[in-house]
Design a protein around this nucleic acid. Structure first.
Length: 706
DNA sequence: GTAGGGTTAG
């Protein structure tokens, strides 16, 4: 076989290498056998075959062939070997091979540098990377196309990893600020006498991954202008996430169109970006289409569709895709778990969440920050703050998301002081709080009535951290003032806040007016509320309840008639409990459960015992104009009472009972559940729409402030 | 010999 034919074969094999590795591998071995058979073992041919093996990433064959070469192997053989080590992430072997090569007296050749630069990038070893850059400068190789491309990638990656190259950066004299990596990217690019599509794509991706979207898109436009280079599938997959982030489905669609016209739409990278882009633009159906149309799906395509479903609130669908992924024998990645666990959190599926946690530990993903954060949140949202704290405490590295998850968890469970001290610990750890972290700590303050702390944090947001308070922060402070009974102050605060209040901000004040029995202010609030949000049925219900509590039945009825005219319906109260593998749902006064008679019987026995212990019915909570006996029945049939009674009769003694309710627990039920927990000697955890209540031994974790 | 996609807290 002539060298010419071999080059042809190699180039064909290279073209095929991405598609059918096994076929190419077979061809490579055939070629090797052929060479040996026809010409015997010649060194030159062996080196050619070695470069073929290394191109196909066949580590085993490459090292075996390399070791069979007579010493010292020529530079080309070394560069093939080093390339192979780098692509197998055997980075230390890359460098030790380079050292061996140097110690044999071989000069460094241009071909080894790209692999070494890549290895130092993967190692995040800035000093090594910079000294390699310096070496290429000394050797006059820093403008070599391949070396410069590797350098661009290196600086771009270090910029995103936040790895500082200042100490040894060859552009040191140019750097005025502490962060010059992204400038070095441009610097290397601008110095290149010749660039190719890889150079452009590397800069474009570098900008895109560092949030420099304008610069990235400008480069794409410029690239199209020069007429020789055209955006390819790499370019597109780098810029699609920009439109996902900006929720710009129109421009995203334009790129989709360009991809179809240029035959890139079957590319699995583009496909996954499209799945993600449509999902992030709230177009789940388009996202699903893009997913189903993919000719080949890899683990990342599956991750994208799972995350897409979960982010769009389609939790069961997300879980379904996760199961399907496993069924199709696609190995889940850490991202698969961090995408699917929030679905368990939202569905309060504690058992499923625990099963997934088990998988995570078995696979060995439990040290992943993203997964750990999602687990902390999941356990907290499923009512198990202890395990949430355990997972958090075991985390080696805690980023702002992890801190926020545990602080919010503590807030939801009424552990306000823990939340506040965790927030302080976070600051001591040098982790800068973000918008959401302030939401968490302010929520904690509001759930516990910590007015002074709340003001302190609220005021420090903008002053110390440059974060402008948003609706959620104002809402938390307003809620706190209202619940502390400082109704007028809350009213003024909302009227003068920096952003337009929403109906829900006024709603919290309306609820506070109800709790503090201020009909007059409530009327003012409801006017403001309905001005912004005329269809807010919660406002009608609350106001009508406030009138009822003040025994102004006519006013209450007037509002209910208005509601009916507008066609607004109250969301029915509903509670649910997981027993065994089943979720049992109860509505207020619901007699449909197959065990209703038993539930009712247990409920009555409990009531007798409760009354003996001193429980007195609080009929203020019944807001219908009905007689006392009817009120009694209405209260005892509140959905959470039914769910708890069912939990008691269908689980073994001592088991914690976990109930979820879609609206807030009423005062009477809150009192009643404290008695029940004591009588049956169990912990009862109730999650309503804003927080958790842990009832144990006659008291509740919220300290009756909620 | 070089380059590219996905993820987490409210």
């Amino acid at each position: 076989m002539s060298i010419c034919t071999q080059h042809m074969v190699i180039s064909i094999l290279r073209k095929n290498s991405n598609r059918t590795v096994s076929v190419s591998t077979r061809h490579a071995k055939q070629l090797h056998a052929h060479v040996v058979k026809i010409k015997g073992i010649s060194n030159e041919d062996n080196i050619l075959v070695l470069s073929l093996y290394s191109n196909l990433n066949l580590l085993h064959y490459s090292t075996r062939l390399f070791n069979s070469l007579p010493s010292p192997p020529p530079p080309l053989a070394w560069s093939s070997l080093i390339k192979c080590y780098t692509s197998h992430s055997l980075l230390h072997l890359s460098f030790s091979s380079f050292n061996s090569m140097r110690s044999l007296g071989l000069p460094p050749n241009p071909h080894v540098f790209p692999s070494l630069i890549k290895a130092s990038t993967l190692l995040k070893h800035a000093k090594l990377a910079c000294s390699l850059h310096a070496s290429t400068v000394r050797l006059g190789l820093d403008s070599d196309l391949y070396i410069a491309n590797a350098l661009i990638n290196m600086y771009a990656k270090f910029h995103s990893f936040n790895v500082n190259t200042n100490a040894g950066n060859v552009f040191d004299h140019l750097s005025l600020t502490g962060k010059s990596e992204i400038h070095s990217v441009r610097k290397v690019f601008d110095m290149m006498p010749v660039t190719d599509v890889v150079s452009w794509n590397t800069v474009i991706a570098g900008y895109a991954q560092n949030g420099m979207f304008v610069e990235s898109l400008d480069m794409v436009r410029e690239m199209g202008k020069n007429g020789i280079l055209k955006p390819d599938s790499f370019t597109l997959s780098s810029i699609l996430p920009i439109f996902a982030e900006h929720v710009d489905v129109y421009r995203g669609k334009e790129i989709h169109g360009y991809a179809v016209r240029n035959g890139f739409d079957g590319d699995v990278f583009i496909g996954s970006s499209l799945v993600d882009m449509y999902a992030k633009c709230n177009r789940l159906e388009d996202s699903l289409c893009a997913f189903y149309l993919l000719p080949r799906k890899d683990a990342i395509s599956w991750n994208s569709i799972i995350a897409g479903c979960v982010q769009n609130g389609e939790f069961d669908r997300g879980l379904g895709f996760f199961r399907l992924m496993l069924k199709e024998n696609v190995k889940p990645m850490p991202v698969s778990f961090s995408s699917v666990i929030p679905a368990c959190a939202h569905l309060t599926a504690l058992n499923l969440g625990k099963q997934l946690h088990g998988c995570i530990v078995r696979i060995g993903f439990d040290d992943n920050e993203f997964i750990a954060s999602s687990l902390v949140d999941m356990y907290a949202k499923c009512g198990n703050i202890k395990i949430a704290r355990y997972v958090f405490d075991r985390m080696e590295k805690r980023d702002m998301v992890a801190w926020t998850a545990i602080i919010m968890g503590c807030a939801m469970h009424g552990h306000a002081l823990d939340a506040v001290s965790l927030f302080e610990n976070m600051l001591e750890d040098g982790v800068r709080p973000c918008y959401v972290a302030f939401m968490a700590v302010l929520t904690a303050c509001s759930h516990a009535g910590l007015v002074d702390e709340s003001w302190r944090y609220f005021n420090s947001m903008e002053r110390d951290f440059g974060i402008a308070p948003g609706l959620e922060h104002y809402a938390a402070v307003a809620d706190l003032l209202g619940r502390a009974g400082r109704l007028e102050e809350a009213y003024d605060f909302i009227s003068n806040m920096g952003v337009q209040p929403t109906g829900s901000v006024w709603s919290t004040l309306l609820a506070a007016c109800r709790a503090h029995k201020s009909v007059e202010l409530a009327e003012k609030v409801v006017d403001r509320l309905l001005l912004i949000d005329p269809e807010n049925m919660g406002a009608y219900v609350l106001m009508s309840n406030i009138y009822s509590a003040a025994r102004r039945w006519k006013d209450a009825a007037r509002l209910r008639i208005q509601m009916r005219k507008k066609g607004l319906k109250k969301t029915p109260a509903c509670s649910w409990i997981e027993v065994g593998k089943e979720v049992h749902t109860f509505m207020a006064g619901d007699k449909s459960h197959p065990y209703y008679d038993k539930i009712n019987e247990a409920s009555n026995v409990l009531l007798e015992q409760m009354e003996k212990e001193g429980y007195v019915l609080d009929t203020n909570e019944v807001l219908h104009d009905v007689d006392e006996e009817h009120k009694r029945e209405l209260l005892h049939n509140h959905s959470e009472r039914l769910a708890i009674a069912f939990g008691i009769i269908s689980t073994t003694a001592g088991t914690t009972i976990r109930v979820i309710k879609n609206i807030r627990v009423c005062t009477d039920c809150h009192t009643a559940i404290k008695f029940i927990a004591k009588i049956v000697g169990r912990e009862i955890v109730v999650r309503d729409n804003s927080r958790f209540h842990h009832f144990k031994n006659g008291s509740c974790s919220c300290g009756d402030y909620w």
